[in-house]
Computed example of a mutant assay.
Amino acid sequence: MNKIIVTVLLFTLSACGWHLRGSAGGNDKLAMTTPMDLVIETKDNHSPVINALRQSLGTYKINEVTESASGFTLTLDREILDKRTAGVGSDALTSAYELILRVDYRISHAGTIITPLDTSARVSRTYNYNVNNANGAAQEEELVLREMRRELAQTILRRVKNLSTKPAPAAAQ
């Protein structure tokens, strides 16, 4: 009887479209298309955003190459992190911080830039800060930053994959 209940619950859960955040579920049509090649250009080859981007390439069936036959190039300019107070407790000490992470990038095809010159991906998160547990708060901040970088990488790769499926990219203005 328990097996039947578990089976029914699993089918119900999968039927509602639920999937793990960050995973390419069945509804992500961009992840299911044919593989493409992409040249990634950046000043810092080992930045955390680049590492998150490279980890997500397989999900979107994108291969990093030095020269691309398809002609698509992703250029990452800079990563900007802004940290500001989001909440103050009754003791007049900071109780929450807001992190805003932005990455400027360009996508080009055969040497022509196809995204606007000021294109950026932006993510913001708020986390609670406990003065009495500064070490735990620092670890939480690192965890939040890692998740933000992963989300930025996936946003950029979805944009690249979306632009690669369009017939003839037009030049940005």
Rank of each mutant, 00 (worst) to 15 (best):
H46N: 15
S47L: 08
P48N: 11
V49H: 15
L53S: 00
L53M: 00
R54D: 13
R54Q: 12
R54T: 04
Q55I: 06
Q55R: 11
L57A: 07
L57Q: 01
L57R: 04
G58A: 11
G58R: 04
G58Q: 09
G58D: 06
Y60E: 05
Y60A: 04
K61L: 10
K61M: 10
I62V: 06
I62W: 02
N63R: 15
N63Q: 14
V65K: 13
T66V: 09
E67H: 04
S68Y: 04
A69H: 10
A69T: 14
F72Y: 13
F72W: 09
L74Q: 08
T75V: 15
L76W: 00
L76S: 01
D77Q: 10
D77H: 08
D77P: 08
E79Q: 15
I80K: 02
I80Q: 07
D82L: 07
D82T: 15
K83S: 03
R84V: 07
T85A: 06
T85F: 10
A86P: 00
G89N: 11
G89A: 14
S90K: 14
A92K: 10
A92T: 13
L93P: 08
T94F: 03
S95M: 11
A96T: 00
Y97I: 06
E98N: 12
I100W: 00
L101K: 07
R102L: 14
R102D: 09
V103I: 15
R106K: 15
I107R: 07
I107S: 09
I107Q: 14
S108N: 09
S108F: 01
H109A: 03
H109W: 03
T112Y: 09
T112N: 05
I113M: 09
I113Y: 09
I114H: 02
I114M: 09
T119C: 08
T119A: 07
S120E: 04
S120P: 08
S120N: 10
S120R: 13
S120H: 13
R122P: 02
V123Y: 10
T126D: 00
Y129H: 06
Y129N: 05
N130W: 03
N132W: 12
N133P: 01
N133L: 03
N133G: 02
N133R: 01
A134P: 03
N135L: 06
N135D: 04
A137W: 00
A138H: 00
E140F: 07
E140L: 09
E141R: 13
V144T: 10
L145T: 01
L145Y: 00
L145I: 06
R146M: 06
R146T: 05
R149Y: 03
R150G: 06
R150H: 05
E151N: 14
E151R: 12
E151Y: 12
L152T: 12
L152V: 14
Q154A: 11
Q154D: 13
T155R: 13
T155S: 14
L157E: 13
R159C: 01
R159Q: 07
V160H: 10
V160A: 14
K161P: 07
